[in-house]
């Protein structure tokens, strides 16, 4: 939404005369223009000496506004896009892939919630390794808790590539590990910064036709949001929603899988429930709740929300040491 002054360079019809006419009525931007009663504005303009020019200018602004929306797509287009671009990516653990009918879908934001030590980070590291190895895709790992362990990634990669306890070739290992990028991030504004940079990088790559990014992981998004949420203002909530809408946009436009982790708080009767409150609930496409039996390496996951699978389903999986 640009100011009228900025539009002048492109559309000379929006000259200073018209701008001062609008400014008198409290209109400085295209957005102000939208929320005004257009009919009264037109009636006003007709009474001015240069009414014809003003009418032209108003039509020009309306034309600019019309051009702002996205083009329409029909079902066939959407289906084509889904089949061509929105594949599922395997997570590397069978139980989870089975539950999600193949894995994490590109273009969607998946939330993984669970108590402390329930395997969230382990699952993120495993998924990062699998995507980097199997699909040769780039992985962006946004780490808020210094819990990204390259050693663990190397161990997972060795497990995935050759189960017979043979070591992976160092050259292959290097190539795969070079495609996993870790960003340490300690506040929500630096996360926005990283995501904006990523967006312009992706745009640049699309132009050159070599988009190979597949996965964004944020472990954990809740530790960035908790310090700002729930204070007297609504600022924190606005940032949370803004973060999610940016992630959804990136996921959709660049066909990325986005995986974020959330912690849990005690709900009714001490049963853990995902944190971040009610307004968060509607934001992710897929919501998963993890738990682990104390001391074992068997993890349980249940589906809280999914666009195409019945919620409430559960599965078990094992993550090897």
């Amino acid at each position: 939404m640009a100011s009228l002054k900025r539009l002048e360079t492109e559309f000379p019809i929006l000259d200073p005369d018209f701008q001062s006419f609008c400014a008198l009525r409290g209109i400085f931007t295209v957005q102000d223009f939208l929320i005004r009663d257009l009919q009264s504005l037109v009636a006003d303009a007709e009474q001015q000496p240069s009414s014809e020019r003003f009418m032209q200018a108003i039509n020009q602004v309306l034309y600019v506004i019309d051009g702002l929306h996205q083009p329409w797509l029909n079902g066939v287009d959407l289906m084509e896009d889904a089949q061509k671009n929105k594949h599922v990516l395997s997570t590397g653990c069978e139980g989870m892939d089975f539950l999600l009918r193949g894995g994490l879908r590109r273009g969607q934001v998946t939330e993984l919630a669970g108590p402390s030590s329930s395997g969230k980070t382990q699952f993120c590291l495993l998924t990062a390794s699998t995507v980097a190895y199997k699909y040769m895709g780039g992985v962006i790992y946004i780490d808020t808790g210094n819990s990204f362990s390259a050693k663990r990634i190397a161990r997972f990669l060795n497990q995935i590539s050759c189960p017979a306890s043979e070591e992976m070739q160092p050259r292959v290992l290097q190539e795969v590990m070079n495609s996993i990028l870790c960003h340490p991030v300690y506040d929500i504004f630096s996360m926005f910064d990283v995501l904006h940079c990523l967006e312009s990088k992706l745009k640049y790559q699309i132009c050159r036709g070599d988009n190979d990014e597949r996965l964004i992981i944020i472990d954990s998004i809740s530790s960035l949001i908790t310090p700002i949420l729930g204070s007297s203002g609504s600022q924190g909530r606005a940032l949370m929603v803004s973060a999610m809408s940016l992630l959804k946009k990136l996921a959709h436009e660049y066909n990325l899988v986005v995986l974020v982790t959330n912690h849990t708080v005690g709900g009714d009767g001490g049963i853990p429930k995902p944190a971040l409150g009610v307004s968060w609930k509607t934001l992710p496409h897929v919501r998963l709740l993890l738990s682990r039996d104390c001391g074992s390496n068997t993890y349980q996951v249940s589906l809280l929300k999914h666009p195409s699978i019945a919620s409430g389903k559960a599965a078990k999986f094992i993550i090897n040491d």
Binding site: M177, L181, H183
Partner: peptide, 30 residues
């Protein structure tokens, strides 16, 4: 604070956003 494109390091051919590290580099540091 506004995003700008100058922070992407294109010299190495990897297009790494500054502040990031690859898992391979981190493995050696660890």
């Amino acid at each position: 604070h506004a995003p700008h494109d100058g922070r992407i390091d294109t010299s190495s051919g990897h297009h790494i956003i500054s502040g990031a590290q690859t898992a391979w580099d981190m493995l050696h540091e660890e």
